[in-house]
């Protein structure tokens, strides 16, 4: 499988000015690694503030001026230079932004999706929007409609890689799945999809791999199947409901689980190898898994470290039940059982 996108040892810091002369760096992302291959849908899951949007913006080359990056981003093996970016953005590389403020308030939404009339009609009806919607201005749309418009805009061309930054909040369960299926379809047709999300349940059901984000780094990259029990059900075997369980990654235990309605129990139908929640490697991934509503909402005490206040060694150490002296040194990512983990003691 060819890699479309490789992000290696990526780091991102903001130059902040205290007063006029004193410049200090605010480290937001450190040692981040992620790859997306052809035909692959990779989810980046992490609580809010963990740097997911900045990763997406870094790939798209739209970071603020005071952002300083390190490491490398490769596009089909080539360094992602500004020149290459100019060539592929909006064509081979498509972007679904996170917030609904990304549409120009003075341009009708139809024109912001695509100028191709036929394609526009097709996409709009595919997302259950009325044809009239194309003639509306962004302020006339509901949040969910805007989301769908932005998804349509990204998928209007035929991108080789879609970077989608939280494309589903505000969508009904049905529409969210609809969008996910569309992304899945594109991946199955050979494109790559990088899905940033804090809806871990959707990620498990549709993505091939999940990169778990914590404090601006990937602590583990695991097959989606590693999050699922051997029988294809969500691990605690609770039944009932219609798959409406929303597993929101929040990091802060009291928020974990969103509405927590019903356990998603249907097989995902993607025919993937089914794993086992215990297959997860990193203590944080396991904590996330345990915090999912299907797994009994088990909270982890503590909160994610904030940018500018990152601990020196392992970022998870302050909350980790397994930490030892060795954890004062930041762990390097290492392959383990088919995944990649950054933890000294993961087995």
């Amino acid at each position: 499988m060819n890699n479309i996108l490789e992000v290696k040892d990526f780091s991102l810091a903001f130059a902040m000015y205290d007063g006029v002369f004193h410049r200090r760096m605010l480290n937001v992302i450190t040692n981040l690694n992620i790859t997306v291959g052809e035909g692959e849908m990779v989810a980046v899951a992490g609580s809010s503030g963990s740097g997911k949007s900045l990763l997406a913006h870094g790939i798209m080359g739209i970071l603020p001026q005071n952002a300083v990056t390190g490491g490398s981003v490769l596009w089909r093996g080539q360094p992602m230079t500004p020149k290459l970016l100019k060539k592929i953005r909006g064509r081979a590389l498509a972007f679904v932004p996170q917030s609904v403020t990304y549409l120009d308030p003075l341009i009708r939404v139809g024109r912001q999706i695509t100028r191709d009339k036929g394609k526009l009609g097709e996409l709009i009806s595919r997302y259950h929007l009325k044809p009239e919607v194309a003639r509306l201005y962004p302020h006339e749309l509901s949040g969910g409609m805007t989301r769908r418009i932005m998804i349509c805009a990204a998928l209007a061309g035929s991108p080789e890689l879609v970077v989608a930054d939280e494309p589903t909040p505000g969508l009904s369960r049905h529409l969210a799945e609809h969008a996910m299926k569309h992304f899945r379809e594109m991946a199955d047709a050979g494109a790559g999809v990088l899905l940033v999300t804090h809806d871990i349940e959707l990620a498990i059901r549709f993505a091939d791999r999940i990169a778990v984000f914590y404090g601006g780094t990937t602590v583990e990259t695991a097959d989606a199947a590693d999050f699922v029990n051997g029988d294809g059900r969500y691990p605690n075997g609770r039944d009932g409901g219609d798959g409406a369980g929303v597993g929101q990654v929040t990091g802060d235990s009291q928020d974990a689980g969103g509405d927590g309605a019903g356990a998603g129990s249907e097989p995902d139908g993607t025919g993937r190898r089914q794993g086992d929640g215990v297959g997860l490697r990193h203590p944080y991934s396991k904590a996330l898994w345990a915090a999912m509503p299907q797994n009994g909402f088990v909270p982890t005490p503590g909160v994610q470290p904030y940018a500018g206040d990152l601990p020196a060694g392992c970022l998870y150490a302050p909350r980790c039940p397994m930490r030892t002296q060795a954890c004062d040194v930041a762990p390097e990512p290492r392959p383990l059982r088919g995944g990649v983990v950054s933890c000294h003691h993961a087995v």
Binding site: M60, K86, R89, G90, R91, F95, P97
Partner: peptide, 22 residues
């Protein structure tokens, strides 16, 4: 500095397109 100009850039619009279009 708006999000929609950021988005326009992410969609491959060039400087002139951004100036005149947005």
């Amino acid at each position: 500095q708006s999000d929609y100009v950021l988005y326009a850039r992410a969609r491959g619009e060039c400087g002139a397109q951004i100036l005149f279009g947005h």
